[in-house]
Amino acid sequence: MNKRLIVTDCESVIDYSRDAVVLCLGDKNLRVRGSDLTVNSFCFGQTDITGEIVCVEFV
C-alpha cells in the first residue's frame, strides 16, 4: 500500500537509492526504507516521500 511521509526541517539528502532515502535532520539522520520511493518535493525545508515505505528509523 502506498504511504506518504512528510519530513520537516530536512537539511540535506545523505543517501538516495532505489529502496532507501537517508535525510540529515541536523544532529540525527532519518532513514526511510521501502520500494518505489518517490521524493515528491525537496525544497524549502520540507521533504515529501511517497511509495511502499516499509521502515522509518533514526540512524
Binding site: L37, V39, C43
Partner: peptide, 15 residues
C-alpha cells in the same frame, strides 16, 4: 539534490 535545494531550485516527483 542538495545543491538544487541550496540554490532554490524546486524539484518534484523525484524517482
Amino acid at each position: 539534490l542538495n545543491l538544487c535545494k541550496i540554490n532554490g531550485i524546486s524539484l518534484w516527483d523525484i524517482k
